[in-house]
Design a protein around this nucleic acid. Structure first.
Lengths: 358, 358
DNA sequence: GCAGGTTGTCGAAGCGCTTCGCCGCGTCCG
DNA sequence: CGGACGCGGCGAAGCGCTTCGACAACCTGC
């Protein structure tokens, strides 16, 4: 070793040290040498795929810690044919429920980390090519697809790819696919049941923006179906309408709705961005919440809590969906069988925005 | 080829097929064979690092297309010591401006793709360990850090890491770091200048939630400073207050503010979640917008457009910041010099929520 | 007509890791 | 007491790619 190369009394504060070799580099070979064992032994200590004696194991672990060793991801992927990375394919477009998407993403990342995987963020606007690239380059072991539409162009591709995948949301034809989502159909029903139970006989669903329905996004359609179903079954009149975002649009919609059906007394709102405006606007139209009109939201709890009055709601359990999705994906990656469909039961939380019909 | 191995009328729905060879595989060797050249030649065609004759090049390209070849990312990373991936480190916590963050993320992904890079999503709640792991495992060529705080614990670490990095936001001590952001200080000034120009003599800044200030988040502090500066310079009275999210909190805040300073006629709102409530609440307190009170927002254009009245605002140019960040990062990755600080000039768009003081 | 460049292509040596086969032990059993 | 076996460890063969040096073949210009 060149004398005194390790320490410097120079002015530089950090970054010093950096032993002998080039920038990064602490390879498994370094660890092996330091611990006085073979490279393969270190590998086995790490993977646990073969028995290693207690004593060697601790020695190797110590060397790893001392040297600050982290396996090179590329090399590992190459040799093991496992990248320990999953792709998260997010839509990138208007009308999507941004905070919910974010919650999903975060839940996915967090859960993935607990099983030693990282997350590659892919936008679907790169289209099929993006998916193929990711898959073919073996960058990822599996794919998580969000915001799936009823007739989603990515779905057939995904089938061909033959890579483990899990969809968050349901396409029209889910054959051979693994899907997870809140049971929106049931969620729609639950909202109506709640309102009907309070005696409301005419209700409205204020849904996602029209573009979302046109795109055939599953959750919107399924919620609508659930609302219509339950209404018919319970004998209440339900009118469903898409709703654009923005205070002005919401006001317009409400005015029209109340003009046409003055006896409207229950509202289901499935549009995060509309919740605030709806609650703010109703009083200005002479309808108090909940005295005159009861409002149920399908939106994150955070919104419901912050609204005033606090909103009775069915939250989208983003966290839970994200966790489920990752754990299903991991099972597929490991070749285990998984159920095709996982529907999470909606839970309605009663707060201050709903009351019995007068 | 085994006769008829491609199609199967069997009962299994998907996952079938799996032609001849093992799972994935179309390697560079396959391409070379198909094109009748050496492996290295294919590599050079791909990278353009050596001259290849027109004729060979097209032949190779054709083979690549025919076989649907995509280079194995792991192998490439291993051999070239380049992962072609950048890490995007996002905060995961309350009080953050979710839609803006999302916009950043999307801009980053999109821009990264244009320079042939992918994006690994990392949450900072894994802490320093996460960063070290990512860096040491050579998964990424560079790091993008979002939502940087004034005294951010990740910053010293980042310095030591010696990996190319770019921060979105500014820490207190930015020595040796590359940072990009909207010039929030200037943004605060611009808002005040606009209001002062309209004749308003007492204004308030309704800022981010208190937690954000406590955390020492740069943009909040810098905006506040800008507001205070400009107010002093222009001789207007400015009061600054943090503001929690939620309709109720906003109302409380406004009531208090107006009680204490009845002559308040200008409001700067830097809190996406508060914009709607503020505009909805002011009229109920007997203040029309913009006749009695002028409101300027620092928030995404989308919010400003959807508000009613349409909000005069300084948007956070997430798209531009994202692009800048990526392109700076790429230059660092390639060893080129880059400026330490990139401050984007704020642009104020006048809409319907501000008017001359009466 | 030949030294000295180009230009285009090839072969081979790794990059850092996993994994397979092998082997020297100590144990257990027949 | 010898063969079978499990345990703990080693060495080496790749994984698919990039890159370096070599080297034909083809120009130049004197």
């Amino acid at each position: 070793m060149p004398a005194g190369s390790g320490e410097r009394a120079g002015p530089r504060p950090a970054t010093a040290v950096r032993p002998v070799k080039s920038p990064d580099l602490v390879t498994i070979a370094d660890v092996a040498r330091h611990a006085g064992v073979a490279v393969s032994t270190v590998s086995y200590v790490l993977s646990g795929k073969r028995a290693i004696s207690e004593v060697t194991r601790t020695r190797v672990r110590a060397s790893i810690r001392v040297l600050g060793y982290h396996p090179n991801a590329g090399a590992r992927a190459l040799a093991s044919r496992r990248a320990n990375v999953v792709a998260l394919v997010l839509p990138l477009r208007s009308g999507m429920q941004v905070p919910v998407v974010m919650q999903f993403a975060m839940a996915v990342v967090t859960t993935a980390r607990t099983v030693d995987h990282d997350v590659l963020l892919v936008t679907s606007d790169e289209g099929p090519a993006g998916l193929s690239r990711i898959a073919a380059s073996a960058m990822v072991d599996g794919v998580l697809l969000m915001d799936v539409e009823m007739h989603d162009s990515r779905v057939p591709l995904l089938r061909e790819l033959g890579r483990p995948s899990v969809l968050i949301g349901f396409p029209a034809d889910a054959t051979g696919l693994t899907c997870v989502d809140l049971d929106f159909h049931r969620a729609g029903q639950v909202c109506v049941e709640h309102l009907a139970g309070l005696g409301h006989r005419r209700i409205a669903l204020l849904g996602a923006p029209a573009a979302v329905y046109d795109r055939g996004t599953g959750f919107a359609h399924r919620t609508r179906a659930g609302v219509v179903d339950a209404a018919a079954r319970l004998g209440v009149d339900a009118v469903v309408r898409p709703c654009e975002e923005g205070t002005a649009a919401v006001r317009r919609e409400l005015v029209e709705l109340l003009e046409r059906w003055p006896d409207l007394s229950g509202l289901v709102v499935q549009n995060e961005a509309a919740v605030g405006p709806v609650l703010a606007t109703l009083p200005t139209l002479g309808r108090r919440v909940p005295e005159d009109v009861s409002v149920v939201g399908i939106c994150p709890d955070q919104f419901a809590e912050q609204a005033s009055p606090r909103l009775t709601s069915v939250p989208v359990p983003a966290e839970e969906v994200g966790q489920q999705a990752v754990s299903l994906l991991m099972r597929k990656v490991h070749g285990e069988p998984v159920p095709d469909a996982t529907l999470l039961e909606p839970r309605l939380t009663v707060r201050d925005s709903t009351a019995p019909h007068r």
